[in-house]
Structure formats: structure tokens, C-alpha cells
Design a protein around this nucleic acid. Structure first.
Lengths: 199, 199, 199, 199
DNA sequence: CGATAACCGAGACGGTACGTCTAGTCTTATC
DNA sequence: GATAAGACTAGACGTACCGTCTCGGTTATCG
């Protein structure tokens, strides 16, 4: 979770790191991200709120990017797909609840901003991809495959394409309006999008 | 373009501002945004590159946010919709070329990031909405209305919804992958999306 | 007095430095030197006590050494030689009162310590020599020459030698005992030293 | 030599301290004092150079002052007085060679600086007096007494005064010039000083 | 011989200060 | 009154050490 120590092999030497410190720092970082956003996140404030010295933060996460990504991933709870039997319904519900949840969380727009910035910073992109996108994508892809086996999806469309067609309109709406997505709007968008992905 | 002067009425007194300074500063800001991103943009660097004193920058754009938004809007060229006769084709082509162009520009992800951050900062949101979103939305809505009159659109869908269904998947794909959108992918997404918005 | 600005020639450009800041910083530095000594002098504390930002201190005196030397020289008042007619008496009195004064000042031992450290640090030595030693040496040498013309000094002894023979024992006594020099002891030492320098 | 252990009475329990560690630390400290001076001496660097953990250093010498004084005393070899029969000659030679030796050693000015600082720090002063000054003073006083019995000294002058009159000028010269004392200068000063202490 | 105690290295910990950088404001001389 | 220059307060940056504390492990004495 925290920055790696040098001696990866065998038993670690010296005093071991306290896990409570990891927690305190990540929690403080997530709170500050929610309150002030990524641009105004300072290591100083994180350390103070966590009741920790600044070097202790740097020891674990050498850059602000590192810390922010880990704090975000740690704070944004994963979503698990429903399973009602109708996989297409499950998929649509997953998209709706996922985007609504994100758009209502104070961390949602931070996640979006970090994604946008990650194009320019590889060190931001790697952990974001591995720790955030991959797990969520796996869940989504699972439901898509279930739906495909139920014959509910257009056979020519790749899973990735289906994902973009369902999640894209919701996320875009939220991005443009800047306000939490309401369920009515979301369902209307999804209702239309279903026509795009049906067989 | 630049920050307002006190005396709005009639002729201003004293030495007039030099328009070249406005241009130099905006150009410098846009370059630095493209090179280093929003987070690493400093007024100091902008002033230096523009060959201008720092207070001269502040006189026009009182905060970094102000400057950044204006520089972005100024730098990202507007896109005018094609008019081939088939308004739905025009609309799709508009979406594709718009997102491709944005995704290929070094400023594209900066625009995205500023959008994401704008949720938290009203002073960022207002000029962004007025100077960036509105003009582009007007162009898009125009084409949508043309298509609607040609009977090419599903009658139950609002213009806003159609916009989300077309642009959303493209932007989302670009956001997630982090790479410039290629035309093949874009056309595949739009081909499916057309089924969602057709009558 | 303070660190030089680049453009020495002609009128300086930009906002001029405030002289009160110079004074506040030097005073704060001298106080802290007296209270805590050279080793525990921190720029941070100086800036805080002077009510000034740290960069403002660094702008004028780029290193702790620079600041300390200037503060010391500024704080230790010069001593002017008496002139009673008998130049040898004047010289002895000068030595006694000079060392007593230094030994009683809380800055005295700091001056001594900085002198000792100056051997290792040229940047400490240069301003110390130019701004502290030279003026005092000039005063002493003046009295010595007066005494020599009155035939009160051994003709074979250089002015430097006479200075060492008179001041050396007093300073050494103070250095070893660690306590302020009392006049009785000083006069006893000088009485003996006079035999060394008499014709 | 090193800091005391709690249980002074009888045999100590537990693993005994390794004497080699004492040596390594003192040597490292003396080297660093010679290379960088007292102000830039850090426990960290001492421990690293000695190949030892930091707590191991603190266990023996709880403060930097403690360590520095012990390292200095340990490193500056004592000088033994010559005995040619003429005690006054012996005394003068002792003064000359003592100051020359000190002024040529890279540790000399450190000793001087620590002396100067010791006025402000009792914990620095005590070990310095006991372990450095006292032994040297005893040797000097011994020769002075021998000289006194040979009738070579002015009967009114205390041993302390004689010490100041002989050593003071040499040390002062070295302190002011900042350069190693050369024998010619030293002998000239002593030749004059002899007139001050002769009967 | 096994328990106990102190040593040793490494390194985490909460801090303090470093010297630098940038923000946003201000003051000056010049245009 | 705009401009270029630059001083100014404020505060974060990332680093170096501080002095203390835990670790795993070692080496002695003592019961």
C-alpha cells in the first residue's frame, strides 16, 4: 500500500513502519482532497491533519501524485455488480449507480481531474490504471460477458465499446453540468443507450 | 478579453493598455499549459516568457484560474459544423472531429482537467461555461435542430440528451485510455450511438 | 550594509529595499546571538523576531555567516582611544577597557567564537577582518605610534608585537577563565606587560 | 572515557560495551571536527563514518557537546615540558611549542572555538576544564614553580599571571592573524614577554 | 544450561530548520 | 495611469538531522 522499502527480500531490518500511520495519512489526504481538491492539496496539511511529521509522509509516498492516487483509490469504495438474473438490467443499473455515486461524492470530480491530468504524468497514470481502473473494468466486463451469453447484446460490439456507450453519456453529462447526476436523467440516457447496444 | 478596467463608461483615462501585452501573455500561458499542465503553471513563468512584469499579468487576470481559462479558450480554436445537407451526418462528423481534435491537442487534457476542477471553483466555472461551453453548445444545438427538422432524430429525446449520447462515448473513451482518439474507434462508437438517437 | 544589489551603477530599478527591514533584522540577529550564541542562531528565528519573511533575510545576507558577522559588527560599539597626553597610559587604558567591555558583553564570547571559526571559513573571515578588525586595529596602531614618538616604547618592537603583548594576556585570561575580566586583574597584567614593551 | 553506565557498583550486567566502538566514534568525530568544524559536526555523520548506529553514539555521549569535547581532548595529544636544567627556558619553549602545535593542527581553531562557546554552556565548560585545561595547567604550573625556585621569576607575579603573560600574546597573535604561528614570531614575542616576568 | 540483561545495527517516528520557490500585493522610476 | 522591475509577507516545497523509540539479533553474566 505504502511506498516500498528498499530491502524487498526477506525480513525487513530496523523498526517496522506503523500501519496506523499509513491509515491516518491516507484518511487525512482523502479528506483534504474532498475539501479542497487536488490542486490545493499540500503535503504539509496532510501531515498536520494526520498528526505526523512531513518526512513520514514522504517516506511512504515520495510525491503528491503518489499520495493522491493512493488516497483516492483507498477512499472510493468499489462497487459490486448486482445480479438479478437479467444481465443487461444489471449492467445498466451498474452504470447508473456507479456514476451517480461518483457524482455525489466530493471525491468524484477529483477522480475525474486526476484522470485528466494522468495523460501528462506517467507516474500518475500507472497506479491509477492498476489500482483504480482495472478492478472496476474487470467487474464491468464480467457483467457484459454475462449479458452477451444471454444474447442481450449486439454481437458486433466489443465489450469496451459497450462500456463506452453506456458509461460515456452519463459521465459526460455530469462533466458538463458540474452537478450530481440525478437518477431520472441517468435512466433516460441509459434507456436510449440500450438501443445502441441491443442486438 | 482582459480583466475589466474601472472606468467602463466612455474614454478611459491615463495611458491605455497595450493590446500586444494581452496577446503575449495569453500566448505564453497557453504554451506553458500545453508544456507543463495546469498544476505546474506559474504566473512567474508566464510573465517571464511574455517579457512582462508580474503585476501586469495580475492587472488583467487577477488569479491563476482566470488567466488559465482565458488562455485555454483563446487557444482552442472553435469548430464550425459542416453542412452537407444531411444534418445527422453533419452532427456525427462534428462529434468525431471535435473529440479527435481535442484529444490530439496538448491542451485537450488540460481542458478536461479544468472542467473537472471547475466543479469546486465557481470563479473557474463561470468563464468556462460562458466562453467555452456556450459557444460550442450553440453550434451543436444548431445542427441538432437541423437534424430534428429533417426527421432524423428520435422525437422523445432532448437536444441535451442527444449531445450526451453522441459526445459522451467518444470523450469517455479518450478519458479512460489516455490516448488520442483514432478515427476508426470514433466511427464505430458513433455508428452504434446513431441507433440510440434515431427515430 | 546589506547584501549588494546587482546594479551598483546609477539609480537602482524597481522598488527599493526598506532600510527599516535592515535594522530590524540586524537587531533581531544581535539579540539572538547574545541570547543563544552562534551555534543556535537560526535564520528562521531571526526572521520571526524581526517580523519579516525568511526570503527577505536571504535577499540581504545569503548565509548565516554573513548575517552573523554583520550583526556582530553592527552591535559591538567601537571604542575610541582616550588622549590624556601620556600615550602609553592611553594605550594601556585602551587595552583594559576594550577587553573588559568585550568580556562583559553577552556578544563578547560570540565575537571570540566567530573569530575562531573564521579560520575555516573565508567568507566569514573577510568581512570580519574588514569591518571589525581593521577599524579597531587602526585605532590601536594610532595610539601606539603616538607612544612611540613620545619615546615610551622599546624601539625594536613592531606595533603588531606591542599589540599582542598588551592585549594578548588580557584576552587569554578571559578566554581561559570564562568570566568577565575584572579591572584589578587586568591592571596587574598590564603593569607587568608594560615592562615588556618599555624601552 | 565514554558516558557512564547506570550500575556503577560491582560488575555490570548484560553485554558489555565494545571498546572498539568508543574508539571508532571518537576517531570519526575528531576527523569530522578537523574537516568541517564544530558547527557542521552532525551525530549522523559521526555514526555513519564510525559504522555505528546513532543510538550507540547517544548511549555514550548524550549530546553533541559531550562528544565534541571528548573527541577533542582525545585527539589533541598532551605535551610534556622539557627539562634542560634552566626552568625559565623550559617554560618559554613549552609556550612556543604548545601554541605552534595547536595552531598547526586542524583541530586547533576548533579547540579555540569550543573554548569561546563554553562560556555560554556549562555542560561544555565542565569537561573542557577537567579534561583539557587542568592537565595542561598542571604541567605549566609545575615548570613555573621550578623556575620560581631557581629565582628566575618576578616574585610578585602569581603563576596564573605568568601563564597569561607568556601564552596570551602567542595565542592572541594566532587568533587575530588566523594563520599558523611561525617560530620566529613566537620567539620574538616570548623574548619581550620574558622582560615582563623576570625579577 | 537457560534466563536475563544490556549491547548493537538499522531504521521509523514527530519535529525543527534549512534554503528555494511561488503567490499576490506594494512601491518606485519611467514612459 | 500603464509599465518593468523588484521588494515584501506568507507559506509550501523537499531534504537533512535531531533525539527517541522500536525491532531482530548478539553476547555477556548469573542462577
Amino acid at each position: 500500500m505504502a511506498g516500498e522499502r528498499k530491502d524487498e527480500s526477506g525480513r525487513s531490518r530496523g523498526r517496522p513502519r506503523r500501519a496506523e500511520v499509513d491509515r491516518a495519512v491516507l484518511t487525512a489526504a482523502a479528506e483534504l482532497l474532498a475539501e479542497r481538491g487536488y490542486a490545493e492539496l499540500t503535503i504539509e496539511a496532510v501531515a498536520t491533519r494526520a498528526g505526523v511529521g512531513r518526512p513520514t509522509v514522504y517516506r511512504r509516498w515520495p510525491t503528491k501524485d503518489d499520495l493522491a492516487v493512493h488516497a483516492l483509490v483507498d477512499a472510493v469504495q468499489p462497487l459490486d455488480a448486482p445480479d438479478t438474473g437479467d444481465a443487461l438490467d444489471d449492467l445498466c443499473e451498474l452504470a447508473i449507480s456507479f456514476v451517480i455515486q461518483l457524482s455525489e461524492s466530493p471525491l468524484g470530480r477529483v477522480v475525474l481531474g486526476v484522470h485528466a491530468e494522468s495523460g501528462r504524468r506517467p507516474q500518475l497514470a500507472a497506479p491509477l490504471r492498476d489500482r483504480y481502473l482495472k478492478p472496476r473494468d474487470a467487474a464491468i466486463t464480467g457483467v457484459i460477458e454475462r449479458a452477451r451469453q444471454q444474447g442481450a447484446l449486439h454481437p458486433d460490439l466489443a465489450a469496451e465499446t459497450i462500456r463506452d456507450l453506456l458509461f460515456g453519456p452519463l459521465v459526460y453529462h455530469w462533466l458538463i453540468t458540474g452537478e450530481p447526476l440525478d437518477r431520472g436523467t441517468a435512466e433516460a440516457l441509459i434507456a436510449a443507450a440500450r438501443r445502441a447496444i441491443s442486438p
